[in-house]
């Protein structure tokens, strides 16, 4: 797993500060997602055709798009799409990954073999390639389709991580004790082992939120994102066609994506320090 600071001696207080900064960004983004209808200066479907493609002004802080819609309003609503895609995708992937990965690691044998080969096949599709194919096939680029497509491909990383951890953990004494006590296998796996291996999964899931937001934005930029709601990637795509005229349309959605991803990465690094201190001792 990548970390920007794992090999880079930032004083403890600064690291906590960066993590706090990341948390603040994420909290701000969640707030704008939840409160979008109340804090947005205009309704989401508001357009003023007399003021198309205008730069930032007092009435429209971040300018207007080619239909005369307020860019700030669209960005605030776009935070909803990012928040939903980021969180739902990661929860779906992490749960599937924990479930299949722990079974794979605990039982071994043909179950393990089959599941690991399946993850290898899924991982042969780099980046958003399989998601592109799935959305193309289902023909309805909705929010749900995007989340589904990203989840189908995204769980394999979690499964492999969890499997590796379970392989180590199942030899430990407390697991043997649980076995000796005659606990059923399901309880040993999910109540004894899984709680002990959650730390790296949570850290990976945090970075996964950033990954899912970027993936959604990429799909939207390619015209394969949710068509039913304003997404940052789609805004950037529209903006890119006008950037000769008005660069602000392309700049602001990109800044929104970048700051969010940056914030989540800071937060992920902080969480890692806190939850999984072994990970940073290597270098």
């Amino acid at each position: 797993m990548m970390s920007f600071f794992d090999s880079f001696k930032v004083p403890a207080r600064a690291r906590t500060g960066l993590a706090g900064f990341g948390f603040a960004i994420v909290a701000l983004m969640m707030l704008s997602a939840i409160l979008a209808p109340w804090i947005a200066p205009y309704p989401v479907d508001y357009i003023d055709i007399t003021r198309q493609l205008e730069g930032p002004s007092a009435a429209h802080w971040l300018g207007t798009d080619e239909n005369g819609a307020d860019v700030l309003t669209l960005l605030l609503y776009g935070a909803r799409v990012a928040a939903i895609v980021g969180s739902v995708t990661v929860v779906a992937c992490a749960f599937t990954g924990i479930f299949l990965g722990s079974i794979s690691g605990y039982f071994g044998g043909w179950v393990d073999e089959a599941l690991m080969r399946l993850t290898e096949i899924l991982m042969a599709f780099p980046g958003i390639l399989l998601a592109i194919l799935i959305i193309f096939v289902t023909q309805e680029p909705s929010l749900l389709a995007v989340i589904g497509a990203l989840s189908v491909t995204g769980w394999s990383g979690y499964a492999r991580l969890v499997r590796g951890q379970v392989l180590v953990e199942r030899e430990r004494e407390y697991v043997e004790a649980a076995r000796a006590l005659g606990f059923p296998k399901g309880r040993i796996i999910f109540r004894e082992i899984v709680p002990n291996i959650l730390a790296p999964v949570i850290v990976q899931a945090t970075f996964g939120v950033a990954g899912a937001i970027l993936a959604e934005a990429s799909l939207s930029f390619l015209g394969l994102g949710p068509q039913d709601s304003p997404s940052w990637g789609a805004l950037l795509d529209q903006g890119a066609s006008y950037f000769l005229l008005t660069p602000h349309l392309a700049i602001f959605p990109g800044v929104a994506i970048m700051i969010t991803v940056l914030g989540i990465n800071f937060l992920g690094d902080g969480l890692r320090d806190w939850l999984d201190p072994r990970a940073i001792q290597k270098t």
Binding site: F8, G233, L236, G239, A250, P253, M258, L262
Partner: peptide
């Protein structure tokens, strides 16, 4: 390690990872 060269390169790496390429492209064009 831990010099300004190191910290500077970490910052560049961080930016490189966080900037989506469909945004960097148009910005470089501008």
């Amino acid at each position: 390690p831990y010099s300004w060269v190191d910290n500077g390169s970490a910052f560049v790496a961080l930016l490189g990872i966080s900037i989506p390429n469909f945004w960097l492209g148009p910005m470089l064009l501008i």
